[in-house]
């Protein structure tokens, strides 16, 4: 993984309204134990990442991406955990409180939307 490696994030359809994505798409839920799931863009293409997610009953309006360096600047370690599949990674928010998580999520969402959809569902 390099500073420019893209980390691919699936965006749930309810997290998109009139083309705008909520910052929640980049914030772990309480059940995620502070870890936000992403895929290593060096190992998998956005379309393939989306296909695997939706094939396993997950819903996704498309794939956005942030760079490894952008996460590093925000103090978010990228864990190459390889679980439950080899290219799976986690952004570690666990050191931050709720307000700080929301702040970082806003910054990540902004970077990702500026970069544009890496893959978008046609539905």
């Amino acid at each position: 993984m390099t500073p420019t490696t893209l980390l691919l994030r699936q965006v749930h359809p309810s997290f998109v309204q009139a083309g705008r994505v909520t910052s929640q798409a980049f914030r772990p839920t309480p059940k995620d134990q502070g870890h936000l799931s992403v895929d290593n863009g060096d190992l998998v293409q956005a379309q393939a990442s989306w296909q695997r997610h939706t094939a396993s009953a997950g819903q996704s309006a498309g794939v956005l991406a942030v760079a490894w360096a952008e996460c590093d600047q925000l103090g978010l370690p990228v864990l190459e955990d390889g679980h439950p599949y080899p290219e799976h990674c986690s952004l570690d928010f666990s050191a931050h409180n709720h307000n700080a998580r929301e702040q970082k999520a806003k910054l990540l969402r902004n970077k990702a939307q500026a970069r544009g959809w890496q893959w978008q569902s046609q539905q």
Partner: peptide
Amino acid sequence: PHLYPTAEGGIQ
């Protein structure tokens, strides 16, 4: 505002 559901059953 844009409105979205939250995982906890709220609205953002």
